[in-house]
Amino acid sequence: MSKTTINKESAADFLMSQLEICETKQDLLLAFWFYWVESVTLTSIEFQKVVANAAVNKWFLIELKKEETECRHLLSHYPNTAGKDKDWLWCQTVSKLMSRFPKVLLEAAKKREQKPRTTKVAGIRIEMSIINQN
């Protein structure tokens, strides 16, 4: 019996690779946001719902800001840190977000369901599906 092992890139390694290819910090943060959302969802529909959820996004940005503050605090103790070492420290610090998630917000984002809506057009009833965001 052979055992198959799948090695997934660590979040810090992912962030380091993205630092090299992203042109702006916004691009880097968007890539990290998608990477994080992918880690907390199982299907493409859940992924879309969570990516589009403002409350989850706000939580993510607040937590990211906390980790960046922690990184700046660490760097203040080592003022000579620069270049790749500084980038690696940022990646290591920020990647802690991969182990945290707002369970209640995620459940609310994922449970949005499509509910049928009936409209009359020229006396004919037409049923349409819309996403209920409540």
Rank of each mutant, 00 (worst) to 15 (best):
E38P: 00
E38I: 05
T118C: 09
E63G: 04
F47H: 00
A54C: 01
T118H: 07
V56K: 01
E107V: 08
V104M: 05
I45K: 06
Q92M: 07
T5P: 03
K96W: 04
H77K: 15
S17G: 11
V94G: 05
T119C: 13
N80W: 13
A52G: 13
C91D: 03
K8N: 14
N132K: 15
I21K: 04
K96H: 09
V37Y: 00
L29D: 09
D85C: 04
G123M: 07
S2Y: 14
T81L: 11
D85W: 10
N53L: 01
T41G: 05
S129D: 05
K96F: 10
V56D: 00
K58H: 00
L75G: 12
K8V: 15
E127P: 02
T93K: 08
A82Y: 14
R125Y: 10
T81M: 10
K3P: 04
K58S: 03
E127C: 08
V37T: 04
L61H: 10
N134M: 11
L42V: 07
S99P: 03
L105E: 01
E107T: 10
N53K: 01
E20N: 01
T119P: 02
M98E: 06
L61F: 02
L74E: 08
T119D: 07
V37N: 02
L74D: 08
K66F: 03
K8L: 15
S2C: 10
K103L: 07
D87C: 07
K120Q: 08
K120E: 15
V51K: 11
N53T: 00
V121T: 13
L15A: 02
K65W: 03
E68G: 02
T118I: 14
L105N: 03
W90T: 08
L105H: 03
T4Q: 13
A122C: 08
L75E: 12
I130M: 06
Q26V: 13
T24N: 06
M98V: 09
L15E: 01
S76M: 07
S76P: 12
L64E: 04
A122M: 11
N7C: 07
H73Q: 11
T119V: 15
L74R: 14
K25H: 09
K3T: 12
I45L: 12
L28C: 04
E127Q: 06
P116L: 09
E38H: 09
L15F: 12
P102M: 13
S17W: 05
T5W: 14
